[in-house]
C-alpha cells in the first residue's frame, strides 16, 4: 500500500544521491532497480506501519479525550491540563533527581576505562565482566536490587552486624531513589566503559611515548593528554545517559517500587504507563509521551550543538 507512494518521490530524489552508489552503476538495469526496491519494501512497510504511523497516531490521540474506544476531540486540553498538574511537576523533578546517576556513571566508566587502557593482565576478562549487567533485563536488575535491599535482605543483615537497625529502603522516597540510582550506576557503567575505551584506543600512542620521554608522569599524562583527547566521546556518553534517564527507567520502577510510595518514585516514562494503562486516560498518556519525545529530541539537539561549538574552539 505504502511502497508505490514512497517510491515515486524517492526515485526523483535519487538523481542527487549518486555518491553512495556502488561502482559500475552505469551497467545497472531497470530490472535490477526494481529488484532492489522489492527487497527494501518489506522493511520500509513495517517501519512505516509500526513506527512512523504510530507516532503520527499518538499525536492525534493526544488531541482527544479517549478510553480507547470512543474519541472526543479536545484540542490542546490534554496538554494544558497536564502542564498545570502539580503531579507532573513533581514527577519531572523526580526525573531530574535521577540525573544524579549521570555523573556517577560517567565517573565510574572513566576510572574503569582509564585503568583497562593500561592493558594489565586480564583486562579482556574485566571488560567482559563489567559488561555483564548490560545483557540483563532492567526487570532482572531491578528485582536483584529489590532483593538485596529488602527489609530482611542481605544489606540489612550487614547493617545489623554493625548494630544499625534495619532500614525499610522502599518505604521512603529518598532511600528508594537512592537504591534505584545505585542500580542505575551498577547496570550502566559497563557499556559506557567500552565506549570510552574505544575513544582512548583512538589516541595516537606516540603522544604518550613522547610525553613519557619528556618526563611526564602517569597523572600528568592523564590530565593533559588522555582527558582532552576523549572530550568528544565523553560528550556522547553524557548525551546517551541523559536520554536514558528520561526513557529507560520504566523497568526499574515497575519492579522495584511501582512508582510508590505514593508518586514519590514515579518518573515520566512510568507516568505515561500509569495514565494510559492503569487509569485509561489514553489521551493524556499520549500527550505526555509526545512531550517526553519532544523533550529528549530537544535535549539531543541542544547537547549536540553545545558539543559542536566547544569542539570548534
Amino acid at each position: 500500500m505504502t511502497s508505490p507512494v514512497l517510491a515515486a518521490p524517492v526515485a526523483s530524489a535519487s538523481a542527487g544521491a549518486t555518491g553512495a552508489r556502488p561502482p559500475g552503476r552505469a551497467r545497472w538495469r531497470t530490472s535490477e532497480r526494481l529488484v532492489g526496491i522489492a527487497a527494501v519494501a518489506p522493511a520500509v512497510v513495517l517501519v512505516l506501519g509500526f513506527m512512523v504511523y504510530p507516532v503520527c497516531y499518538a499525536i492525534w490521540i493526544s488531541f482527544n479525550k479517549t478510553n480507547g474506544l470512543s474519541f472526543d476531540y479536545v484540542g490542546l486540553d490534554n496538554y494544558t491540563k497536564l502542564l498545570a498538574d502539580p503531579l507532573l511537576h513533581k514527577v519531572f523533578l523526580t526525573n531530574l533527581i535521577f540525573l544524579i546517576s549521570v555523573p556517577l556513571v560517567i565517573l565510574a566508566a572513566l576510572v574503569c576505562s582509564v585503568l583497562l587502557y593500561e592493558r594489565i593482565r586480564g583486562w579482556r576478562f574485566f571488560r567482559v565482566l563489567f559488561f555483564v549487567p548490560n545483557v540483563l533485563s532492567t526487570a532482572v536488575i531491578g528485582l536483584m536490587f529489590k532483593s538485596l535491599f529488602s527489609y530482611r535482605g542481605p544489606i540489612n543483615a550487614v547493617l545489623a552486624q554493625f548494630g544499625i537497625p534495619p532500614v525499610d529502603f522502599f518505604a521512603g522516597a529518598g532511600s528508594a531513589i537512592f537504591v534505584i540510582i545505585i542500580a542505575l550506576v551498577w547496570s550502566g557503567f559497563g557499556y559506557q566503559t567500552i565506549i570510552l575505551l574505544s575513544g582512548l584506543s583512538a589516541i595516537n600512542p606516540e603522544i604518550f611515548e613522547a610525553a613519557t620521554v619528556d618526563g611526564a608522569g602517569w597523572w600528568k599524562r592523564l590530565w593533559y593528554i588522555t582527558l582532552p583527547n576523549i572530550r568528544g566521546v565523553l560528550a556522547l556518553v553524557s548525551i546517551l545517559n541523559v536520554l536514558y534517564t528520561f526513557t529507560a527507567l520504566f523497568g526499574f520502577i515497575f519492579v522495584m517500587t511501582a512508582g510508590g510510595p505514593g508518586y514519590d518514585t514515579t518518573t515520566l516514562d512510568y507516568l505515561i504507563y500509569t495514565l494510559a494503562f492503569s487509569s485509561t486516560r489514553l489521551g493524556e498518556g499520549a500527550a505526555l509521551a509526545v512531550m517526553v519525545f519532544l523533550l529528549i529530541g530537544g535535549l539531543t539537539a541542544l547537547q549536540l550543538r553545545v558539543f559542536r561549538v566547544s569542539e570548534e574552539n
Binding site: M51, P54, Y57, A58, I61, T247, I272, A289, V290, F293
Partner: peptide
C-alpha cells in the same frame, strides 16, 4: 531514536 513509550499507546490501540 523513537522511544517505546511513544509507541506503546498507539500500537496497543
Amino acid at each position: 531514536l523513537i522511544p517505546s513509550q511513544v509507541l506503546i499507546i498507539p500500537i496497543y490501540l
